[in-house]
Design a protein around this nucleic acid. Structure first.
Lengths: 142, 142
DNA sequence: GACATTCATTAGAATTCTTCTAAATTAGCT
DNA sequence: AGCTAATTTAGAAGAATTCTAATGAATGTC
């Protein structure tokens, strides 16, 4: 395979740049994750998608890979639901709607939520990140 | 037992007001939860505390009770960590610091975080609640 | 290109947290 | 006291994730 010229947004280039060995499994997962716009996925979803494509990737590898990608800054962890971990391919500044009834996440552009004031971190601690989660329910006024 | 005059902030009155049968177990849990200021607890923590007091309450009852209390508006669910559910005795308007390294929650007064703008809910949905979580890490400038 | 080394993958077991089940107990009536 | 519905319980079951220890694959060296 000719790999002399690889875009940084292609799966291979992305992995290279992140210092991750491009294995068959990682390439498959990177393709699923990064070639269809911003996504919010769970490990289980990914497993099913990958399986549907005919690729064989174990659950352990899916978890390992998601964590590797997250550490490398390719993904971001989203905590909105106990007992379900979402990974977000949008690592930029933004927040989330969470449709509880459908277990579905929707991005909110970072600038749409402006914090007029942010509390100081307690002594000895620093702010790592600020998550804003807007929980949605069905609108009753049907 | 004389129950003619019961404060609404005493365990018994609290349960009565919420329409919950005051059982031995619920009274014990209510006492643990509501008589030492605002708290953030997990089911496991509560189990241990109750056990330390010598009361016998099964895990199933702890979960049942926490959920009953939450439905009754006595507690609030806090999601900050996948695979760990916190219950907050402060049901008023406020947000949270989360010290990831210690799995510890700290309240942020509701007015300390002002949202300058809030996004509109997508069509057919309404905003249920807005959570702001400020994640903390140890301050490096030791 | 073969070799050695290090890193990655895997199946399945194990862990953790939470919910379920079905039987026994208890609270709140009359 | 006796009735009924709500509650509690131990233990099994379930769901999501991590661990283990063995196999396999990528990379650097000659």
């Amino acid at each position: 395979m000719d790999v002399t010229h690889v875009s940084e947004t292609e799966p291979l280039g992305r992995l290279r740049k992140a210092g991750l060995r491009p294995t068959r499994q990682r390439l498959a997962l990177a393709r699923m994750l990064f070639s269809q716009g911003d996504r919010h996925v769970t490990a289980e979803q990914l497993r099913d998608e990958v399986a549907a494509e005919g690729a064989r990737v174990s659950m352990a590898t899916i978890y390992n890979t998601l964590h590797h990608f997250t550490r490398a800054g390719l993904l971001r962890h989203v905590v909105v639901d106990a007992g379900r971990t979402y990974f977000d391919t949008n690592t930029g500044h933004h927040h989330h709607f969470y449709v509880e009834s459908e277990h579905r996440l929707i991005d909110i552009d970072g600038d749409t939520v402006r914090l007029a004031s942010v509390p100081d971190a307690p002594p000895g601690r620093a702010i790592d990140s600020i998550d804003v989660i807007v929980r949605l329910k069905p609108d009753i006024r049907a």
